[in-house]
Amino acid sequence: MKWPVSLVAGAVLSVLFVVVALLSFVWTPHDVATLAIADKLQPPSPTYWLGTDHFGRDTLSMLMVGARTSIAVAIVAVGIGIVVGVPLGLAAAANRGSLIDEIIMRGNDLVFAFPSLVIAILITAVFGPSAVNAILAIGIFNIPVFARVTRGGALSIWTLDYILAARVAGKGKLRISVEHILPNILNLLIVQGTIQFSLGILAEAALSYIGLGAQPPTPSWGRMLAEAQTMIYTAPRLAMWPGLAIVAMVLGLNLMGDGLRDLLDPRVRRERA
């Protein structure tokens, strides 16, 4: 079997970020919690590989811990989308055309009308900003995406002969959904999961940039950019690294998603995300 180039390149990039994020739990070049004002706004040097910010914090260490925040938020948000969305999609497909199907799909349309940013605004307006609220906002946005992909994939499996055989053998809808439908749409879900993961990284960065996500002192790429913006005249360098990190991570995940899609099923078109 030939592995798509994009899959390999994307996977290498993505795994690199995950390793760096995990590494940050046990080691960073410098401590991100201690401020060293004497060393503020240092250019890159052997001590500070990527330089320091206005509080004298090491940029590389901040990026490493920031990767942790981004990945954690995006993964949990994808998890919410899968845990809630997939069963809804399976139920809708199993009862195609019924009232249940109609209610689930109209509910989906409704949630689609709330962009994740608007959900974040609603939650934050009432509960205040936090990383947890960012997870909730992105997670809720993911639910209809997974429900739709699941339903679409499941509907085409339901028409196949072996499902008919299973029904004749007396299996119920729930058992067929779990034993036969779910394993056969796993490919679709993995590809969609990768795409939503990358969208989650972007959304987390945007939310923490405008102050609706992770709060200080938790380092996050979006917040690093927000702080860098105030110093864009004096230290434009600070605005480069977090942005490059976001682009590299998202690019890696997107390439991986494209590659996985080609590998797992060449016929599958990208679902509306």
Binding site: S198, L202, A205, A206, Y209, I210, L225, A228, Q229, I232, P236, A239, P242, G243, I246, V247, V250, L251, N254, L255
Partner: peptide, 18 residues
């Protein structure tokens, strides 16, 4: 276009300002 999708628009905005 793959790159364009990966770039956060607010960061791109900061680069434009720069």
């Amino acid at each position: 276009t793959q790159l364009g999708i990966a770039v956060p628009n607010f960061w791109f905005a900061m680069l434009l300002v720069l």
